[in-house]
Simulated assay, not measured.
Amino acid sequence: MFFATRCLPGGGETTPPPSDPTTPTTTPTTPTTASPVATGGLDAKMKAKGKRYFGTATDPGTFGNSQVASIIRAEFGSVTPENSMKWDATESSRGSFNFGNADALVNFATTNGKLIRGHTLVWHSQLPGWVSNINSASELTTVIQNHVATVAGRFKGKIDHWDVVNEVFEENGTFRNSVFYRLLGEQFIDIAFKAAKAADPNAKLYINDYNLDYAGSKINAMISLIGRLKSRGVPIDGVGTQAHLIAGNSINSVPAQIRALAATGLDVALTEIDIRIRKPVTSALLTQQATDYATIIKACVDTPKCVGATVWGVSDRNSWVDSTFPEFDAPLLFDDNYAKKAAYTSASNAMN
């Protein structure tokens, strides 16, 4: 494992981007079943290869920009909410749910014929303090079940994939010391998946993690966990590998790990792709980044169980990398001025 500093979880959004204030609400939206639609750009090429989507992460704070919205409409077939469906955004106070930004994301997606990857239901980060302070296993079980039922249930019939449980492992393959694991052991995963299945039976249910891109303890632990979950009859459909990468750093190892995850029998998705470049950004590094994007997109194309790929944002102008890794820059397919980069061309060509 080459990371001196790990990729922060779930896209690493330690502070959600600013967005318009919303009024807490519990009124459900009318369900409509999402389905793939004819799209141009990257998504059309991915579908031509028998995959389900080529997607991006966004939220009202980014797709509110007309240039970003236009790119999403033209290029991407799926959207993942960057922050608006996380626990702190949807239930910051116990039993008080706020779906303003999540509803806006879902409405944008459905209006424009995009699939939605729900992200994420149970995660140790961006977790309200009231959840972290629970000290009863039975109480936490009830809280997980209620949160998942309410959030997943609100969008029943609209979500294609749900990242039900996110980032459960440390780098050495041990379980993360979260409130969920401390009180419930790995059974918290079973509880969350069963609640999600009950809330939205037709959504595909995923476990998602970062640094599954290299052989070692973490991916081995994930594969072992998947085997246990399947043996217990947990309703799990897929595994997401985030693919937050660094240009030029052993990315040739990624295809083998995608195949290893596919060998579990689950669907595989590349869920949060970005390939950051150490400053100063040079033409040579941009060329390397382009090569690396081609490597991982082709790996998905070449793996039958890989259903799709999502880049974690539209343009370099709005990326979590800027604030989290200030020594890095330029991780995405479009530059600060929303122009296509060499990485865009290479990702596109990888699907030819």
Rank of each mutant, 00 (worst) to 15 (best):
P331F: 07
W320G: 11
V307T: 14
T295G: 02
F334E: 05
C300S: 13
V281G: 00
L286F: 00
V321K: 14
T295F: 02
A309T: 15
L332G: 01
V307A: 09
W320L: 11
V281L: 00
V301P: 09
D292F: 02
A284E: 08
Q289M: 01
T324G: 13
V281S: 00
S319C: 11
S315W: 08
V321I: 15
F334V: 06
Q288M: 04
T310G: 10
Q289V: 01
S315F: 08
L285F: 02
W320T: 12
A330C: 03
G313R: 14
S315R: 11
T291F: 01
I277S: 11
T303S: 08
V307S: 10
D335P: 03
R317D: 10
S319R: 04
A290S: 04
V314T: 07
D292E: 05
V307Q: 12
A309F: 10
T282M: 01
A290G: 03
I296R: 04
I277P: 13
W312P: 08
Q288G: 04
A290P: 01
F334L: 05
D322V: 15
D316K: 05
K305N: 08
A299P: 10
T295W: 00
P304W: 08
R276S: 13
T303F: 06
I296Y: 05
V311P: 03
A284F: 03
K279R: 11
I275T: 11
S319D: 10
P304T: 09
R276M: 14
V314W: 05
A299F: 12
D322T: 15
P280A: 12
L333M: 12
A309D: 06
K279H: 06
L286E: 04
S315M: 07
E327Q: 12
K279G: 05
W312R: 06
T291I: 04
V301Q: 13
K298Q: 08
I275D: 09
T287C: 00
S315G: 12
Y293N: 06
S323L: 15
T291N: 08
D329T: 04
A284N: 04
I277Q: 12
I297F: 09
P304I: 13
V301S: 11
V301L: 05
N337P: 00
S323K: 15
I277M: 07
F328H: 12
S323V: 14
T324S: 15
A309Y: 05
N318F: 15
D336M: 01
T287F: 01
D316Q: 11
V314A: 04
T324N: 15
L333G: 06
I297Y: 10
K305H: 03
K298M: 05
T282P: 02
P326F: 14
I296H: 02
V311Q: 04
T310I: 15
A284H: 01
G308D: 14
T291M: 01
S319P: 09
R278T: 11
K305M: 08
T310K: 08
F328T: 07
D302Q: 13
C300Y: 11
N337V: 00
L285V: 01
D336Y: 07
K305L: 07
Y293C: 00
P331D: 05
G313A: 13
S283F: 01
W312S: 07
A284V: 07
A330L: 00
C300R: 15
D302P: 08
T295R: 03
C306M: 11
N318Y: 15
N318G: 11
P331I: 04
T324D: 15
D322I: 15
E327M: 07
V281C: 02
S319L: 06
K305T: 10
V311D: 01
F325E: 14
W320D: 14
G313H: 13
T324K: 07
